[in-house]
Simulated assay, not measured.
Amino acid sequence: MYSEPQPTASGEQFDPSAMTAAHKSLPMDTMVEVTNPADGSSVTVRINDRGPYIAGRCLDLSTASFEKIASPSAGVVDVQWQVLG
C-alpha cells in the first residue's frame, strides 16, 4: 500500500482515494482484480504506476483499494490477482 501524493509512471498525479495500483510490467490502464484469500474480499484496480521495488511483492495498491481488502494497519497482505479482460 502507498499513499503519498506523487507523479505516477503514467503521468497522472497519484490519488490515494482512487482504485489504482502499481505493477512492474503490466501495461498502463490494465484492470486487475485483487483478492485477499484470507477473507475473500476483492477490489478491481487500474494499473497506473510502476513498482513495487521490494523483493517478493507483486503490486502496490493505493490506500483506498487496499482498505477494500485489508486493514490499513496491516500495510502488506498476501493476495491473489488476475488481469480482467
Rank of each mutant, 00 (worst) to 15 (best):
S3R: 13
S3T: 09
E4Y: 10
E4F: 08
E4L: 15
E4H: 12
P5D: 02
P5E: 09
P5N: 06
P5S: 10
Q6D: 13
Q6T: 13
Q6S: 15
P7C: 09
P7K: 14
T8E: 00
A9R: 07
A9E: 02
A9Q: 05
G11L: 07
G11S: 03
Q13V: 13
Q13P: 12
Q13D: 14
F14P: 02
P16V: 06
P16T: 13
P16A: 11
S17T: 12
A18E: 09
M19Y: 14
M19E: 02
M19T: 01
A21S: 00
A21T: 02
A21Y: 03
A21R: 14
A22W: 07
H23G: 00
H23E: 01
H23Q: 00
K24M: 07
K24R: 11
S25A: 10
S25R: 12
L26Q: 04
P27S: 00
P27I: 00
M28V: 15
M28D: 11
T30N: 02
T30C: 10
M31E: 11
E33V: 10
E33D: 09
V34M: 07
V34P: 05
N36F: 06
P37Q: 04
A38T: 09
G40F: 05
G40N: 12
S41I: 15
S41P: 14
V43R: 02
V43K: 01
T44M: 14
V45N: 09
V45T: 05
R46V: 07
R46M: 08
I47S: 03
I47L: 03
N48C: 04
N48W: 10
D49K: 10
D49M: 00
G51M: 00
G51P: 01
P52E: 03
P52R: 05
P52T: 03
Y53T: 00
Y53Q: 08
Y53N: 04
A55P: 12
G56V: 00
G56S: 03
G56C: 04
R57T: 03
L59W: 03
D60F: 10
D60S: 11
L61C: 06
L61D: 10
L61F: 09
S62K: 08
S62W: 09
S62H: 09
S62G: 02
T63N: 15
T63I: 14
A64D: 01
A64P: 11
A64M: 13
S65C: 12
S65Y: 11
F66V: 07
E67A: 06
E67P: 03
K68E: 08
K68Q: 13
I69A: 04
S71E: 06
S71A: 09
P72D: 05
P72E: 15
P72H: 08
S73C: 13
G75L: 15
G75C: 04
V76F: 02
V76G: 01
V76M: 05
V76K: 13
V79L: 05
V79M: 04
W81Y: 06
W81N: 01
Q82M: 09
Q82T: 07
V83P: 06
V83D: 08
L84F: 11
L84S: 07
L84H: 06
L84C: 12
